[in-house]
Simulated assay, not measured.
Amino acid sequence: MAEVPFIAIEGPIGIGKTSLAKKLSSHFNYHLLKEIVEENPFLGKFYDDIEEWSFQTEMFFLCNRFKQLEDIDKKYLKENKAVIADYHISKNMIFARRTLQEGKLEKYEQIYQILTEDMPAPNMLIYLNASLDTILERIHKRGRDIEQNIKASYLEQLRNDYEDYMNAFERLHPNIPVIRINGDTTDFIQYQQDLDCIIETVTKHLAVAGGIKMKGNQ
């Protein structure tokens, strides 16, 4: 694990990853890395016709996330500056396996492996999940036009895919702590005590890691 904190937040669409990343970035004074979403020119078409536009959509995300992480590694992590991201690049394979047909999935996975083999890995992962009803409610509240046509069945499949992935991640990476947060019972946006609880948990994990700075880019 890297000495400088590199925390990634993951979970299904609409669960609150960016909101939590902003709050933790502000509290710990860590650089905030936000994934590019609405800038993807294929995303609206993807939600209308997943099969037709999945490859273009996933390739755009992969290339942009690769570039973001490459820059973060050079400008922050290698300069001993802490980072918190509202995504983990391995999410690309969660979406690709759900949306790409077999032939395109094989090509995509080859490109993914080449691009990510030297990418910096987070040394802490925060995993947000919730029931489908909660996810739908939060997507509705934030009101992104491109998300209004997302099928509930797709979101439910994605929610289950994330759960399977995170269970496998914990088995494969026992040295990377995963903080699980139940979005049905935790609302860190509306309730300060819920946010304080998350901050306390993250702080404890940073302390256990040993030698990791509690505050960031100072």
Rank of each mutant, 00 (worst) to 15 (best):
A2D: 12
A2C: 04
E3Q: 08
I9P: 02
G11I: 07
I13D: 01
I13A: 04
G16H: 02
G16N: 04
K17G: 06
S19M: 08
S19C: 07
K22S: 05
L24Y: 09
H27V: 02
Y30E: 02
K34R: 13
K34M: 10
E38I: 00
G44A: 01
F46H: 11
F46P: 09
W53N: 14
Q56L: 12
Q56E: 14
T57H: 03
F60E: 06
F61R: 08
Q68V: 03
K75A: 13
Y76V: 03
E79D: 08
A82K: 04
V83E: 02
H88K: 11
I89A: 06
I89V: 08
K91E: 15
N92F: 07
M93G: 00
I94L: 10
I94N: 04
F95L: 09
F95N: 04
L100C: 11
Q101W: 06
Q101D: 10
L105Q: 08
Q110G: 10
Q110M: 11
I111G: 01
Y112I: 12
Y112E: 12
Q113Y: 15
L115H: 13
L115V: 12
A121F: 04
M124I: 07
L125A: 02
Y127N: 09
L128Q: 06
L128R: 03
A130I: 05
S131D: 11
L136D: 10
L136W: 09
E137G: 09
R138G: 07
I139N: 05
I139H: 05
R144A: 05
D145I: 12
E147G: 08
I150N: 06
L155A: 02
M166H: 01
M166I: 15
N167K: 14
N167R: 12
A168Q: 14
A168R: 14
F169G: 01
R171P: 01
L172W: 09
P177G: 05
V178T: 10
I179M: 13
N182D: 15
D184P: 06
T186P: 00
L195A: 05
D196K: 07
I199S: 01
V202F: 13
T203R: 14
H205M: 01
G210L: 03
M214I: 13
G216T: 10
N217M: 10
